[in-house]
Design a protein around this nucleic acid. Structure first.
Lengths: 197, 197
DNA sequence: TGAACCGGATGACGAATGTCATAGCGAGCC
DNA sequence: GGCTCGCTATGACATTCGTCATCCGGTTCA
């Protein structure tokens, strides 16, 4: 029996994945959690062989959880096949990366292959990740772009990050250049889509 | 046996929901589709009693599908509990509206209740929808906001919608006023979060 | 038959944004 | 010790954006 823990904040999706894996004779879902920061304790309590992690979760993101977890095989299961996500996941030492629009049968297969010591990554996604490359943004450029999301003004961002307005404009300009965008909003959108934020 | 059709573009989620409902003795999943425009033919072919529709799908959105479907009970199953979505769903005559972070057990319950002729809506969400009210945006204001998403410039939008740049600026200004935002990006963000786009 | 409203347009004005040059400071690297 | 690079900052400039007043033509509705 392969013991599996599932972490996903959407009840219906989490329950669905559990039901899906529950159909497999050799897989047993031993625990389910809805928040990133509940994964650690649950792993300690239930000792699963494989942990399935969604990325977008309250508490801690799946990527952050993956960085902290040791002694257990991790598969990231996410809606967004963003190159930057994959890169960060691999840096965090995960064993698998599955997007939610993959065929349903692939999930159980991924669990088995990861259990067998293999690394499971969608090949197409891997190619894109290589092509896109690592984030060219500096830490501060990323901060500023994140703060700019949702339509914050320069002075909003400056206040939020304790910077001068001029400095914020400089970072924005530089981030716009690096993303190949033509304005702030486009830069945010591009950076998001590549998983650089 | 309650015959159910599931429409959701994410294979893993769709399969999960199917597995979840498949555990119920009185429910049978007779068909699964991944695109909005495949729902119509599938309904004709399989004659389900209840149709579960995701909103975000390629082809047609779940809301558009719901408007066109007749002779079958529809439940919207969506990630986003946006007031505007609920309003449009009810206008389209759906029988149920379930958000994906509802407890897993609630899905089967919703299917049964809808089958029994009830209307199933999360009460909290209904209250919010009433409070937020219908969209104050005119058709064109909505178009312009949608086109502005992702960081398009005024001239981009003008070209896309065959309008003068001045006219685009006017609509944007008016939309910014109605959303209570302070600029374009914030207006898009606010309108999105309320389901007005 | 007006009033109210939407779609569309023009022109003008001030404010916000994006760009660029320049500069000081500290960390890391050959 | 010099070099590069990131973080922070200033000042100046051109462009874009957001606002406002005003206009026309068509619907809808009292």
């Amino acid at each position: 029996m392969i013991r599996v823990l599932i972490a996903d904040d959407q009840d219906l999706v989490r329950g669905g994945l559990a039901a899906l894996l529950g159909l497999e004779p050799d897989i047993e879902v031993v625990s389910e959690v809805a928040r990133g920061d509940e994964v650690g304790p649950a792993v300690a309590a239930h000792r699963p062989d494989v942990v399935l992690l969604d990325i977008e979760m309250p508490g801690l993101s799946g990527l952050e959880v993956a960085e902290r977890l040791t002694g257990v095989r991790v598969i990231i299961v996410t809606t967004f096949g963003r190159p930057g996500y994959l890169r960060r996941a691999l840096d965090a030492g995960v064993a698998g990366f599955v997007v939610k629009d993959a065929p349903a049968a692939e999930l159980a297969a991924a669990v088995r292959r990861v259990m067998a010591g293999e690394r499971v990554v969608d090949p197409k996604l891997a190619v894109t990740a290589l092509a896109v490359g690592a984030s060219p943004l500096t830490v501060r450029e990323g901060d500023v772009l994140r703060a700019a999301d949702g339509g914050a003004s320069v002075s909003d961002i400056a206040r939020a990050l304790f910077l001068t307005e001029g400095t914020v404009r400089n970072y924005l300009s530089s981030a716009i250049g690096k993303t190949g965008a033509r304005n702030r909003a486009e830069a945010v959108s591009v950076a998001r889509s590549r998983g650089w934020l």
